[in-house]
Design a binder for these strands. Structure first.
Lengths: 365, 365
DNA sequence: CTGTTAGCGCCTTCAT
DNA sequence: ATGAAGGCGCTAACAG
C-alpha cells in the first residue's frame, strides 16, 4: 500500500489516457468526450484522488484565487467592531461569488517605538490582490511590501494610493449634515469624540500638537468636517477604540471638564455609533437626560437592538461598501481596471438630538 | 525595460551566486555567510524582487502555511455572532504566532432540498489543515471532501470525526449546573430556548419528531442535559439564530402559549446569552419582572455592556477554546499528533435568576 | 559555506 | 478529441 497521495499522472495512467486529457476532465476548460471524462473521474475515485493539487495549479497558472484582506493592526479589534464586521460581510460575499478565497491578514506584526513590522503573511502568502479595509497611512510599509511583490491593491477609506483602487464613503458630507441638523436646533457649543487617530493609540483630550497627528482616514475626514464647519468646538476627545466603554469614558471626561451646566457643551458629535451609545449611557448614569440636557449624534447607522430610543446618526452602507470593494477586486482581476468609488451616506434623525437646554428655562437643580 | 517579475534565478545571477544559495538567503534555513546574504539581498532590492514566489515554494515544500477555517453555512452569521467572533479571535492569534495564515471558508455552498453543496474553496484551495469551528454533522460532506484531499481536520464542538483532533467544552456539565441552581431555588416548571438544530433552520416550538433532528452538537448537548435532568420541561422553543431578537421572539411565544401566571413556567434555560438577553427584554416589554416573575439563565458568559443587571450564565472560555484549536492545528502540523480537549465551564450566578413567584404570595394583578 | 542536480504537480501550447 | 513535450519558481538532498 502506497502512502503517497496520487497525482494527476497516476489517475491518467489508471484511466488509460494522457495527463493533459486527465487535466481537462477536471478543469472543464477544453473539449473532452463525456465518456473519457467519466473514465478519468472513475479512476480518480478509485485511487482516492482529491482533485488537482493547488500548488501545482497555482505555479502553472500564476493565480491563487485568493485575496488577502488586511484588517488592521489586530484581528481582535476588527472582529469585535460591528462596523468592520459588516464590511467584511459584504466583501466576503462578493468575493465568494467569484470563488475567491479570503485570507485574513493582520497587516502589522509589531508596532514598537513607531517602528512598524509588517506581518510575514503580507510578505510571503500567495494572493492575487490585497484589500486594505481600513485605508493606508502615509508611507505605509504594507503598501511598500505589496508594491514590491507586484500585488494590486484595493483601499477602503482614503489616503489614496497611486495606482490602486479606492472605495470610500462621503464622511465629510455626513458630518456636515449632522452639524447642520444640530445648529438648526440651536446648538452652539460642541464637543466631538473621535475614533483612534493612528496606530499608536491613545485616549484623552486632544491638543493642537496631537491634532496634527491624525493619520487614520475616517477619523481625519470626520474631524475635518467639524473643524471646517465653523461651529464653536470646545473640545476634541480621542478614543483608543470604537467601543461602548470608550464612549462612556469620553463622556465622563467631558462632564468632568465642564461641570457647569450653563457653559457645558450642548451637543456631542461622536465619530461612531458605539461611541455615541456609550456617551448616552454615561449621561444617563450621571442623571442627565438625552436630548434634553445634551444632544448626542453618532456615525455608522448601526442597528443597536439594546439601545432604547434611536440614535441620530449618519447611515453609511457598510455591507454595500464591502461588496463594492469585492467588485473592485474582481475588476482588477478581470482586466486590471483601477476604480474609484464614493458611497453616499444619509443622516437619520433619531431621538438623541433635540434643542439645547434653553437658558431662559433652566432645569431644576 | 522588462515587464516580467524577477525570479530567484535573476537575483542569483545578479548577485553572482547559485540559485540555491540565493534561496538560503531568504529562507534562513541553512548556513550562509552574512556577506553572501547581504550580496543577495542587495541584488534583490536592486531588481525589485519581492521575495520568493509562494507558488513555487508551496509546490516544492508541500506546505502552504495556511489553515482553512470553516466557519459555518454563512460567513455573515459567524461574523455577527459574538461567540464565533471570540473563538475566531483566539484561533487566529494562536495561528498567527506560528505564522500560519487563516483562509476563511464558508464550507457550505448551497443547501437545497437537503442537498448539501460543498464550497469550491474546500475542494480546491491550498491548506495544510482545516478547522471546522462549529463541528461536523453526521456524514458531513465537508469532512468527506477533506478526507479525500488528505487534509487533517480539527473539529470544534463534537460529533467526533475519526482521526481528527477535537476541542470541545463541557456543555453538559454547564447546563446541569444551571438546572441544579434553579431547582435549588425552588423552580419546577421549565422552558428551554435552543440554538438552531441543523442546517435547515426553523423557528418555533419543537415536537417529538423535530426533537430527533438535532444535528448541531452544542444544541444537542445542551438540550440533552435538560432532558436528562428529570425536571418538568413544558416546552422546547427552537430559534433560527442566536440573536437578541430571536430570544425576544421566543419569549413572546412562551408568554402567548402560557398566558396564566399560575401555570406558566417559572424558569427559562436559554442556550445562549443573546437568546437569554432577548428573553429578558421581552419580559420587560410585557411588564414582567426578572427574576421575580420569571428566572432566565443563559449560556456563554458574554460581556453585554448594554445589559442592565447581570445574566446568570455558564461561562465558557471562548477565546481559550479558539487558542486551543490553534494549538491542536500546530500539533497536527508538527508531528501529526491528534488531540482531544475538553474545556471546563463555570456557572456564574447573576441577577436574572431567583426564587419562583410563590403561590402563597401572588403578585398583584 | 556554496554549488549541482532533480524534480514538486500541473497546465498550456502544439501537433496529431 | 486526444497526446507529447516543456517549463512555471522554487527548495531538498547531496556533493564539494
Amino acid at each position: 500500500m502506497s502512502h503517497a497521495r496520487p497525482t494527476l499522472t497516476d489517475v491518467a495512467r489508471a484511466a488509460g489516457v494522457s495527463v493533459s486529457t486527465a487535466s481537462l476532465a477536471f478543469s472543464a476548460s477544453g473539449p473532452i468526450a463525456d465518456s473519457t471524462r467519466a473514465k478519468v473521474l472513475d479512476a480518480a475515485t478509485e485511487l482516492g484522488y482529491g482533485g488537482p493539487n493547488p500548488a501545482g495549479r497555482q505555479l502553472r497558472s500564476g493565480r491563487y484565487d485568493i485575496v488577502g484582506v488586511v484588517i488592521g493592526d489586530k484581528l481582535k479589534r476588527s472582529f469585535r467592531d460591528p462596523v468592520s464586521v459588516q464590511v467584511l460581510d459584504g466583501l466576503t460575499s462578493a468575493l465568494g461569488e467569484a470563488d475567491l478565497g479570503v485570507l485574513l491578514v493582520p497587516g502589522v506584526e509589531s508596532y514598537v517605538d513607531g517602528e512598524i513590522g509588517v506581518d510575514p503573511l503580507l510578505t510571503s502568502a500567495g494572493m492575487d490582490v490585497a484589500v486594505l479595509i481600513w485605508g493606508a497611512h502615509t508611507s505605509d510599509p504594507r503598501v511598500e511590501t505589496l508594491r514590491k511583490r507586484g500585488i494590486p491593491i484595493v483601499v477602503g477609506e482614503g489616503n489614496e494610493v497611486e495606482g490602486s483602487s479606492l472605495v470610500e464613503i462621503d464622511d465629510h458630507g455626513g458630518v456636515v449634515a449632522t452639524i447642520e441638523h444640530l445648529t438648526g436646533l440651536g446648538h452652539e457649543r460642541f464637543v466631538t469624540i473621535t475614533l483612534p487617530f493612528r496606530m499608536g493609540r491613545r485616549e484623552g483630550w486632544v491638543d493642537d500638537a496631537r491634532r496634527e497627528l491624525v493619520d487614520w482616514t475616517p477619523t481625519r475626514h470626520r474631524l475635518d468636517a467639524v473643524l471646517g464647519s465653523g461651529v464653536d468646538l470646545v473640545g476634541i476627545y480621542e478614543t483608543e477604540a470604537s467601543l461602548v466603554e470608550n464612549g462612556a469614558a469620553a463622556m465622563r471626561a467631558i462632564l468632568e471638564r465642564f461641570p457647569d451646566p450653563a457653559t457645558r457643551p450642548t451637543a456631542v458629535v461622536a465619530q461612531s455609533d458605539l461611541l455615541a451609545a456609550g456617551a448616552v449611557l454615561a449621561l444617563h448614569e450621571a442623571g442627565l437626560r438625552v436630548p434634553e440636557d445634551m444632544s448626542v449624534a453618532g456615525f455608522d447607522g448601526l442597528d443597536l437592538p439594546w439601545f432604547s430610543g434611536e440614535l441620530t446618526t449618519v447611515i453609511q452602507p457598510l455591507e454595500a461598501k464591502g461588496r463594492e470593494m469585492g467588485l473592485a477586486v474582481r475588476a482588477l482581476l478581470a482586466d486590471g481596471t483601477v476604480t474609484r468609488t464614493t458611497m453616499p451616506v444619509e443622516l437619520r434623525i433619531g431621538t438623541t438630538t433635540g434643542p439645547p437646554p434653553s437658558a431662559a428655562a433652566p432645569r431644576n437643580s
